[in-house]
Design a protein around this nucleic acid. Sequence first.
DNA 1: TGAAATACCTTTTAGTTCAAGGTATCCTGC
DNA 2: GCAGGATACCTTGAACTAAAAGGTATTTCA
Lengths: 112, 112
Amino acid sequence: MAQSNPPFMSGVPELLLLQLLNEQEMYGYELVRSIKTVTRDAISLGEGVIYPVLHSLERNGSLKSKRKAVGGRTRVYYTLTRKGGARLEKLQDDWRRIQGGVATALAGSANA
Amino acid sequence: MAQSNPPFMSGVPELLLLQLLNEQEMYGYELVRSIKTVTRDAISLGEGVIYPVLHSLERNGSLKSKRKAVGGRTRVYYTLTRKGGARLEKLQDDWRRIQGGVATALAGSANA
DNA sequence: TGAAATACCTTTTAGTTCAAGGTATCCTGC
DNA sequence: GCAGGATACCTTGAACTAAAAGGTATTTCA
């Protein structure tokens, strides 16, 4: 039946979004540029990645959104729910675990 | 035409394999268990991940293999080529970049 | 008026990883 | 002498993620 676990590496886009939205509400287009800035260009995620993740997080109750008209354009602002906060903590833990795992491996013969 | 870049997070299995093989020659089954050990259980990759990566690395000239009969079983030992060494360095850099990127983002409002 | 930036979104394609299954040998205990 | 578990190789099929590209519409500014 092959019920796959989520690929162990994934969820970084999701992690970054939740992290930023935990600090302040933002809208999609803003998040696209924020991620680039905040990671000092190390990570650049296009709109085709951001919007689908945003929508799925809202669907599962991790985010809530609010439309605001600014000038003539509409912006959709997102904020974390309590569930989103829990999700963020889980993803942070996951990340630290695998980051630590890779670091240990890389330390193998290196410098030291 | 959508000529995709490899997903920015990927290549961690490849990185771990190359790293371990850079330290000493190993065979597939051994690598499966080594990765689990060396990452202190943070990362566990099955044979279905390891063998295909091994084969594709050999195909593109990053690894070379040598069969050895041990008892009645055959082991296929892999070692890095020069090209594999270069590939390892590239993946290490990639990893450090994205790791740094995520770290910067996570540092945002945290503890400090 | 026309190009670039802002702002939303979806669809298509490609790529990776996962679980599971398949073969065969060896060793241990019974 | 044979059953079961560990060793050792491998492939297949499904699931999931993320990348790229395209599509609409408005605003700003030259």
